[in-house]
């Protein structure tokens, strides 16, 4: 078994780092306030997470993704991309969580914090 000592150490280290990443994400997660939609890296629209709605996102190369916001969760219901991976990325509600559609270059992410006091109102 001494032969595999380094293997065990390496795999333990990989698992440990993975655990640390998980812990960091879990401890810092907060329910978000907004759904931010980016196409090609720039924000194209921001929607409130607490209002049920449906939107059609126009991505790059003529692609589109149908975004659903319901019960404080956001997800992609249908998409024009061939793999449809964005539909499989599940429902998101926590700050920083995101749905990525690489073919359409669309990133949908949760921003803001739901419970925080309002520091400033942007816009208007």
């Amino acid at each position: 078994m001494k032969k595999h000592a380094r293997d065990v150490l390496l795999i333990a280290l990989i698992m440990l780092i993975g655990g640390v990443i998980a812990l960091c994400l879990l401890l810092t997660r907060k329910t978000g306030a907004f759904v931010e939609v980016r196409v090609d890296g720039s924000v194209v629209s921001v929607y409130p997470l607490d209002e049920d709605a449906e939107y059609l996102i126009e991505g790059a190369h003529g692609g589109s993704n149908r975004l659903i916001i319901r019960n404080g969760e956001a997800w992609v219901e249908s998409a024009s991309c061939p793999d449809g991976l964005c539909m499989n990325m599940g429902h998101i509600r926590y700050k920083g969580a995101s749905i990525v559609c690489l073919p359409n270059r669309v990133v949908i992410s949760i921003a803001g914090e739901a419970d925080e006091d309002v520091d400033a109102v942007v816009g208007q």
Partner: peptide, 23 residues
């Protein structure tokens, strides 16, 4: 590469999943 190309750091959750699927 995704962080650089899509200019977003919000895919940290994704990193966690791929960290373990990679193993």
């Amino acid at each position: 590469a995704a962080i650089l190309l899509l200019q977003t750091t919000s895919i940290a959750w994704y990193l966690l999943i791929l960290w373990f699927t990679g193993t």
